[in-house]
Amino acid sequence: MMTKNRNQHVVSRPRGWAMNPAGSDRASSIHETQREAIDRARDIARNQKGE
């Protein structure tokens, strides 16, 4: 099974920080702090071999 490489983007939102997969307008998760969003994005990127 081949996994699609998807980079993760952390963006500011009115009520926190969102993690969006590249090419998606919808957040896959929302976090209270930028650090939480970055840490989660890194975990997912590592698992999917993205950035």
Rank of each mutant, 00 (worst) to 15 (best):
Q48T: 14
I38V: 09
K49I: 13
R13I: 09
R46T: 12
M1F: 12
K4G: 09
E36Q: 11
I44L: 12
A37W: 00
R40I: 03
W17C: 00
G16A: 05
E32I: 09
D43G: 10
D43R: 14
N47L: 13
N5K: 15
P21L: 05
A45F: 11
S28T: 06
H31N: 00
R26Y: 06
M19E: 01
M1D: 10
R6T: 15
V10A: 08
T33G: 03
D43S: 05
W17D: 02
R42H: 07
N47A: 14
E32M: 05
W17L: 01
R42Q: 03
D43M: 09
V10M: 04
M19V: 15
A18R: 08
Q48D: 09
I44M: 08
T3R: 11
K49N: 15
S12H: 11
Q8F: 12
A27I: 02
A41Y: 03
E32N: 08
S29F: 03
I44H: 07
A41C: 04
A45K: 08
H31C: 00
S28L: 04
V10N: 06
P14S: 13
A45I: 13
M2L: 12
H9S: 11
D25W: 12
D43K: 12
N5V: 15
E36F: 03
D25L: 13
R42T: 05
I38P: 00
R35H: 05
M19F: 05
S29E: 01
H31T: 00
M19C: 09
V11H: 12
A22K: 10
E51C: 10
R35C: 01
Q34H: 10
R15T: 14
Q48I: 13
R6A: 12
A41F: 08
V10K: 08
N20M: 05
P14C: 07
N5T: 15
E32Q: 06
R40V: 07
P21W: 15
E36P: 04
M2Q: 14
D39C: 04
N47P: 04
R40L: 02
R40Y: 13
N5S: 13
H9R: 15
S28G: 01
R35T: 01
P21A: 12
T33P: 02
M1I: 11
R46I: 14
A18T: 02
